[in-house]
């Protein structure tokens, strides 16, 4: 398992480093950065959904908190955007712990609906508190300042290139942490809990506490993803916390394979790229996305990567 972890990370790192060699224009850096941001949020969901077996349909709410922390803190508190990212993480973690305690007692659909409600509440607050957030028209986000710092050191990079590398590195760190967790005692306990809560509790696993941990960790992942998105766009609206965004993240996780970090990243790649490829027939975009989902669910129920890997193993 240890080797598998380093192989997965190495493949990811090589891909991130080598892909720009094939990029014909700056636009592809933007797509790459978007993929990494989505993949980061999806990695968080892998921990919660894939390993702990819980569901969240409101994770964009945490992305919204991370995004608006980066927009609001520099403007009103005078904090540096990097500190604002950390602030967003702390707020998201705190909020996740606070609401997670009661709602993680719920199971299945009920948990889904409760988390859905949380996401919608965040969107409503962001939309209605105009004085702070600028309402549905959104607000500008201060620049990170790292690119200027690099320029002073003699390294000139365009915005797109900078964010490609920044998001790529953060994703690598995120994937590394997640894979470490998978192989730790906590990771094994999480998977035991997924298998059977009753069995897990009989062998001394503190089930509610562990569920809460998974929820908090995944919230922090979503928060960082939201912060990165806000900082690279330089402008943010409540859409980032919206219901559709929550569903998008879950769909990516399920499509790629919710039990595996690399699978989830694959899901993010496909669902970020597809709308860009399908612009030629934009009217059919939703149709194609829906068809892909249905086909994957029917023929590859564990998600793309785990199902294909299992099939390859069976027929060597």
């Amino acid at each position: 398992m240890l080797t598998s972890k380093w192989v997965q990370l190495a493949v990811l790192a090589v891909l991130i480093a080598a892909l720009p060699l094939l990029f014909p224009s700056g636009y592809y850096y933007r797509i790459g950065a978007l993929i990494f941001v989505n993949a980061l949020a999806v990695t968080g969901l892998v921990i919660l959904v894939g390993w702990a077996g819980q569901i969240s349909l409101g994770h964009a709410g945490f992305a919204g908190i991370g995004a608006y922390a980066c927009a609001l803190a520099p403007e009103h508190l005078g904090l540096h955007p990097v500190v604002a990212i950390v602030l967003g993480m702390v707020i998201s973690a705190g909020l996740a712990a606070l609401i997670g305690k009661p709602i993680l007692r719920l199971k299945g659909y009920y948990l889904g609906v409760a988390t859905l409600g949380f996401g919608i509440l965040v969107t409503m607050v962001l939309t209605n508190e105009r004085i702070w957030t600028g309402g549905p028209d959104g607000m500008s986000v201060a620049k990170l300042g790292l690119r200027e710092l690099l320029r002073d050191m003699g390294v000139r990079v365009s915005g797109g290139v900078f964010w490609y590398w920044a998001c790529g590195i953060v994703l690598l760190i995120g994937a590394w942490l997640a894979l470490n967790l998978y192989n730790s005692a906590t990771g094994r306990a999480l998977r035991a809990l997924h298998g059977s809560e009753v069995a897990a509790s009989t062998i001394g696993i503190d089930v509610p506490r562990l569920k809460l941990q998974a929820f908090v960790i995944s919230a922090v992942y979503a928060s960082v993803a939201g912060s990165l998105l806000a900082l690279q766009n330089g402008f943010i609206t409540p859409d980032v916390a919206g219901f559709m965004h929550s569903i998008e993240i879950v769909t990516m996780a399920v499509l790629g394979g919710v039990g595996s970090v690399v699978g989830a990243i694959l899901g993010a790649v496909i669902l970020t790229l597809l709308p860009q490829v399908l612009t030629v027939f934009a009217e059919y975009e939703q149709l194609v996305l829906g068809a892909v989902m249905i086909l994957v669910m029917i023929f590859l129920p564990r998600g793309l990567l785990p199902s294909i890997a299992a099939r390859l193993k069976r027929k060597p």
């Binding site: 014909p24 224009s25 700056g26 636009y27 592809y28 933007r30 797509i31 978007l34 959104g138 797109g160 998105l229 766009n233 402008f235 943010i236 609206t237 859409d239 980032v240 709308p275 860009q276 612009t279």
Partner: peptide, 14 residues
């Protein structure tokens, strides 16, 4: 807005 920014990048760069 996030998609709009991506498409604007695509229009300009690609």
């Amino acid at each position: 807005p996030n998609k709009a920014r991506t498409f604007a990048t695509r229009l300009i760069e690609d």
